[in-house]
């Protein structure tokens, strides 16, 4: 299992374009992707659940990846959300 904390870099927040791009990037990994914000956990492969976080630019989220290809998945996620904080 891998865990990382990210700060949302997208000016418009983590929905619409950035969220749909995130979901298409992670959905084919075998690993489960969970996103946690303020104690609320959602499925990172679901655009709808991601949007319900209402994560704004600057908000911190924790991403948990668990499964056989978790390292690769985390790399892709870093490319999507950018710098760790």
């Amino acid at each position: 299992m891998k865990k990382e904390v990210f700060q949302i870099p997208f000016p418009e927040g983590f929905h619409a374009r950035p969220a749909s791009s995130f979901v298409s990037a992670v959905k084919d990994f075998e690993s489960a992707v969970t996103i946690v914000k303020d104690g609320k956990e959602v499925d990172g492969k679901s655009m709808i659940q991601l949007m319900t976080l209402g994560a704004k630019c600057g908000d911190r989220i924790e991403v948990i990846v668990d499964g056989s290809d978790e390292s690769e998945a985390m790399e892709v996620i870093k490319e999507q959300i950018g710098g760790t904080s």
């Binding site: 709808i48 319900t52 704004k56």
Partner: peptide, 21 residues
Amino acid sequence: LLSEQFKNLDDEYLQQRAADM
């Protein structure tokens, strides 16, 4: 449940997603 969650967000774009749900 999902629609409630959308309605409670303070972003107009996301609030409107409740209607889609």
